[in-house]
């Protein structure tokens, strides 16, 4: 199993700004952790199915029936920044 982690790339995906110190410390700690989890390579999983959920339920659905919504003011009151009835965010740079 691979055991290196590109901390800067992963932090970019996760949208967390890291200091150089954090890159160093987390890199070491997570490298160690990967060393430990690599023990899983010892298991023979060739013919094993993957478990995403332990419960065996299927088709747990809801009827297409309207339910009450939240009060807009109650929600917007907690917005970090609002403008009128909208949530406001800094400019979006297209990617």
């Amino acid at each position: 199993m691979p055991d290196s982690i590109d901390i800067r790339y992963v932090a970019t995906l996760a949208r967390i700004a890291l200091t150089d110190d954090e890159v160093e410390v987390f890199g070491r700690q997570l490298g160690d952790l990967l060393g430990h989890v690599n023990a899983l390579a010892e298991l023979d999983t060739a013919s094993v199915s993957a478990t995403a959920q332990v419960i065996e339920s299927r088709n747990v659905l809801r009827e297409d029936r309207p339910a009450p919504c939240l009060d807009r003011e109650k929600v917007l009151a907690q917005a970090p920044q609002r403008q009128g009835a909208f949530f406001r965010v800094p400019r979006i740079i297209a990617e």
Binding site: V37, L40, A41, L43, T45, S49, A50, T51, A52, V54
Partner: peptide
């Protein structure tokens, strides 16, 4: 691989 290990543990 972890999900498969989960199957083995269960």
């Amino acid at each position: 691989r972890a999900q498969k290990a989960r199957t083995l543990i269960a």
